[in-house]
């Protein structure tokens, strides 16, 4: 029987993160994502050359309120970013996502210099490419990110996020220091395009942008993320250059906010072992969003990373 094959006109952009010595950086290896000419896992339809890459999230400060399973994995190192970074790589991170939470005015208000110091320490400690994520406070990010960008100059990091109302400073920094950029949009395909247009009109290459469409956790709006990602991807494969970018998902952050993942056994005795439940929730969320067309997944728990990886192996074998 002949199978019905969808033919797309264009491909998702290919993006390589990290720079080795030869490329002017200090990374031991680079990570390449994107490049597919079809929807995920449909190898019979087209090329799907680069499977999704897993980044593990770490903070520049000790997190508060991370539930027990995460504390078990990181509590002994999370006061020291360099140690945390090494631990994450041991857990299988292909990239690290350094979240500069501590620079937020409400979460420590650390200085741009301190943030740059953290990034330098992490770069020294590990050899994987970095994603560097601002605190989300526009004014503070506009102070911090240029310094951080400069500190990581030449390392070909992925910096985020540029949003519709605040994209100029970050775009200028990434241009100056040779980084890639994350364009963020709140579950809105129009705004995703608009952010990409705004960034590219500053002279930034469309091929160097990653889309962050905002992530919803399993049970908490994941279907919105899924349909927006899928719509964006099909548009990108159908010739819309403004939507042909790889997509990043913050699965760890969102999954570990929901009570199904973090609620204690005492509060929810019928839900089973928290140590299994949380990681399972995170892995399921990751697997689903990768199906919608995600290329980079930012995760937290080592067990979730492990099970998602084995799933990927099965699917890509």
């Amino acid at each position: 029987m002949e199978s019905v094959v969808e033919k797309w006109t264009t491909k998702v952009n290919t993006i390589t993160l990290g720079a080795t010595k030869q490329m002017g950086g200090t990374r031991e290896k680079t990570v390449t994502v994107g490049g597919s000419s079809t929807l995920p896992y449909l190898n019979f339809e087209g090329a799907w050359p680069n499977p999704p890459a897993i980044a593990i999230e770490m903070w520049d400060r000790e997190p508060d309120g991370w539930p027990e399973p995460l504390a078990d994995a990181y509590a002994d190192v999370w006061k020291d970013p360099a140690k945390w970074a090494k631990r994450a790589v041991e857990y299988g991170a292909e990239m690290l996502c350094v979240t500069l939470k501590g620079t937020h005015p409400d979460f420590g208000n650390r200085s741009p210099d301190e943030a740059a110091g953290v990034v330098k320490d992490v770069l020294k400690a590990v050899g994987v490419p970095l994603i560097i994520w601002g605190s989300g406070d526009f004014n503070k990010d506009n102070d911090v990110m240029p310094r951080v960008s400069e500190a990581a100059k030449g390392e070909n990091c992925l910096l985020g996020t540029a949003v519709e109302k605040n994209y100029k400073t970050l775009t200028a920094s990434c241009l100056a220091d040779g980084h890639k950029i994350i364009g963020e949009s709140p579950l809105d395909i129009n705004i995703a395009k608009q952010v990409n247009i705004l960034i590219s009109e500053m002279g930034f290459k469309l091929e160097d942008i990653v889309i962050f469409p905002a992530t919803g956790a399993l049970g908490y709006g994941m279907e919105y993320s899924y349909s927006i990602m899928e719509r964006g991807r099909t548009a990108g494969l159908s010739g819309d250059r403004m939507l042909a970018q790889p997509v990043i998902c913050t699965v760890g952050q969102e999954s570990w906010r929901v009570k199904e993942a973090r609620g204690s056994e005492k509060d929810f005795p019928t839900w089973g072992d928290l140590k299994k439940r949380g990681p399972l929730w995170e892995a399921t969320c990751a697997a689903t969003l990768m199906q919608a067309g995600g290329e980079i997944v930012v995760m937290r728990h080592p067990d979730a990373v492990k099970s998602f990886k084995s799933l990927l192996r099965e699917f890509t074998a």
Binding site: N190, I191, K193, I197
Partner: peptide, 15 residues
């Protein structure tokens, strides 16, 4: 609504 939000840009999201 979809068309409306695409049009909330100068000149339009679909350049």
């Amino acid at each position: 609504m979809e068309e409306y939000s695409s049009a909330m840009f100068l000149p339009h999201t679909n350049l």
